[in-house]
Computed example of a mutant assay.
Amino acid sequence: MEVTGIITAIVIGLIIGALGRLVVPGKQNIPIWLTLVIGVVAAVLGTLLAGALGVAETPGIDWIELLLQIGFAAAGVAVIAGVRGRSRV
């Protein structure tokens, strides 16, 4: 992967993290930087899963890959918010 590909993945991951946070209902008591880290990880996981399923390279916008990434981000935000919410009593 080239440097531009890594930078693009990070930028897309930041957007995915924000979208994942918007999908999860209620207030999440996690810092924004953690949401963004979750987004970057979710973007990578979503891309890997889309590649494994054979839907990573499609003409136009890769909607399935995008939905997988947002799903991973939403799940990550929900899990981390739940864990952090319970640990701070």
Score class of each variant (00 low, 15 high):
Met1Asn: 10
Met1Glu: 06
Glu2Pro: 13
Glu2Phe: 10
Val3Lys: 10
Thr4Met: 06
Thr4Ser: 13
Thr4Asn: 09
Thr4Asp: 06
Gly5Val: 03
Ile6Asp: 06
Ile6His: 12
Ile7Val: 15
Thr8Gln: 13
Thr8Lys: 15
Thr8Asp: 09
Thr8Cys: 08
Ala9Met: 03
Ala9Gln: 02
Ile10Leu: 06
Ile10Ser: 01
Ile10Cys: 03
Ile10Gln: 01
Val11Met: 01
Val11Cys: 01
Ile12Ala: 06
Gly13Trp: 00
Ile16His: 03
Ile16Glu: 00
Gly17Pro: 01
Gly17Asp: 00
Ala18Gln: 13
Gly20Met: 07
Arg21His: 11
Arg21Ser: 07
Leu22Thr: 14
Val23Glu: 03
Val23Lys: 04
Val24Glu: 11
Pro25Lys: 15
Gly26His: 03
Gly26Pro: 03
Gly26Arg: 04
Gln28Trp: 09
Ile30Leu: 11
Ile30Cys: 05
Ile30Asp: 02
Ile30Met: 08
Pro31Ser: 05
Ile32Met: 06
Trp33Asp: 08
Trp33Asn: 09
Thr35Trp: 01
Thr35Asp: 05
Thr35Arg: 02
Thr35Phe: 01
Leu36Ser: 05
Val37Met: 02
Val37Asn: 00
Val37Gly: 01
Ile38Val: 02
Ile38Gly: 00
Ile38Phe: 00
Gly39Tyr: 00
Gly39Arg: 00
Gly39Pro: 00
Val41Met: 03
Val41Trp: 02
Ala42Asn: 05
Ala42Gly: 09
Ala43Pro: 01
Val44Ile: 15
Val44Gln: 09
Leu45Lys: 11
Leu45Glu: 09
Leu45Asp: 09
Leu45Asn: 13
Gly46Phe: 02
Gly46Asn: 04
Thr47Lys: 12
Thr47Ser: 15
Leu49Met: 14
Leu49Glu: 11
Leu49His: 11
Leu49Gln: 12
Ala50Asp: 06
Ala50Phe: 07
Ala50Val: 07
Ala50Ser: 14
Ala52Phe: 15
Leu53Cys: 12
Gly54Glu: 00
Gly54His: 02
Val55Met: 14
Glu57Gly: 08
Glu57His: 15
Thr58Tyr: 05
Thr58Arg: 09
Pro59Lys: 08
Ile61Phe: 15
Ile61Trp: 15
Asp62Pro: 12
Asp62His: 13
Asp62Phe: 05
Glu65Ser: 14
Glu65Ile: 07
Leu66Tyr: 11
Leu66Ser: 14
Leu67Trp: 10
Leu67Met: 12
Leu68Gln: 05
Gln69Met: 13
Gln69Ala: 14
Ile70Ser: 06
Ile70Gln: 08
Gly71Ile: 03
Ala73Val: 04
Ala73Asp: 03
Ala74Trp: 03
Ala74Thr: 03
Ala75Thr: 06
Gly76Asn: 11
Gly76Ile: 05
Ala78Val: 01
Val79His: 11
Val79Asn: 10
Val79Cys: 10
Ile80Val: 15
Ala81His: 14
Gly82Gln: 09
Gly82Pro: 08
Val83Ile: 08
Val83Pro: 02
Val83His: 06
Arg84Asp: 02
Arg86Cys: 10
Ser87Asp: 12
Ser87His: 13
Arg88Lys: 14
Arg88Pro: 08
Arg88Met: 13
Arg88Ala: 15
Val89Leu: 13
Val89Ile: 11
Val89Asn: 14
